[in-house]
Design a protein around this nucleic acid. Sequence first.
DNA 1: ATATAATCATACTGAAAAGTATGATTATGG
DNA 2: CCATAATCATACTTTTCAGTATGATTATAT
Lengths: 200, 200
Amino acid sequence: MKVKISQNKALKRKRILAAAKEIFFSSGFVGAGMDHIAAEAGVTKQTVYRYFANKEALFVAMLEEQRNQTANHFLEALNDEDPYVALQGFAEGFVRKHLSEEHLAMIRLLVAEGPQNPEITAAFFATGPKRTMDSLALFVQERFGISEAEDEIKAFLSILQSQRMMVLVGQMPCPTGSEIKVFAKKSVGQFLRLLKIDIC
Amino acid sequence: MKVKISQNKALKRKRILAAAKEIFFSSGFVGAGMDHIAAEAGVTKQTVYRYFANKEALFVAMLEEQRNQTANHFLEALNDEDPYVALQGFAEGFVRKHLSEEHLAMIRLLVAEGPQNPEITAAFFATGPKRTMDSLALFVQERFGISEAEDEIKAFLSILQSQRMMVLVGQMPCPTGSEIKVFAKKSVGQFLRLLKIDIC
DNA sequence: ATATAATCATACTGAAAAGTATGATTATGG
DNA sequence: CCATAATCATACTTTTCAGTATGATTATAT
């Protein structure tokens, strides 16, 4: 009983990329096997090699796919009319994203394979952080009338990202949703203090 | 005579561990070959296996060795009579260490192999950060009369460590000595602002 | 000095995994 | 309906590498 499967090439490509993501994320670049990826995609190894020249090409294509599908929707929170609510929402979303399983797995891959392929990691991180920085700079300019706050913004983002490193390195377990809320609130408070804004 | 034996054995062990460090750091856990390590140590593979049961045992032993030989001498800077000089010295030493080639290589190894061997990374980071936190807590208590500054200290250390992540991930090149100085100064200023200490 | 233990040199085993080959089978387009 | 391209199933090649085996050689111990 063969179900008629649409042999759409783009679909099959996506299936292979999804399987590659699954396996690369869970096993790392070297740990992932092409047979394994093919099986996960419900496809033969030869089919994988018809779409991608070799393992590294598949890896890079998968990173590309991932980067294109990843949206920084936490920036939208900055549009809230109340600037403090906006910051809180941003901080929460930012931390949540940077602690997501997908993001952690990606960081692990990039940190591990980074030295061998520096251009890959550089490309992946080229756009994201810059846009976040710019959005925050515009935000503090418009809402608080503060310009030249680059150092404070960098510090803010550093604080928000600190848990990621600790989780990556086994210093702490991945925090829960409510723990993230508390942490985000504290961090926003520290950001405001750095900007010399007294909230109370 | 017994002493002489153990000295020779200990020496050979150290040579093997040094070679392992070299190769593991430059090639990663999987990329490092036992033949390669043995050659680097000027020893036969069988000798390596006489001292260490297998690759993973050698890896763990190497991490242990590294941890024991790594001193947090940046803590000594906190003893300076001028608290601002003390903080500046601490910050500089802290950043410099966390950007050293050795430390970066170690982080890469631990982040990459972390998921497979969580206990290794946990053990490695068990003592260091805690002692640093405690020393800083004592410092602000004694010098500034501030207790309960845990959140601010965490933020300070997060800021100081932020460049490491960026370097690891290819967002920025490893900063020079003078750039580290400038960065440390800025960061100390932000720490003081978080503590509500007005320096000017 | 002689037995014992450590090291050397070299080769082998076994497993894993990337990539290839091939003939059969199935889908697709004209 | 037929030709062509894609996919399947399976097996093979080749390489790499951890770990083992062995016999020779050197150091250490009693």
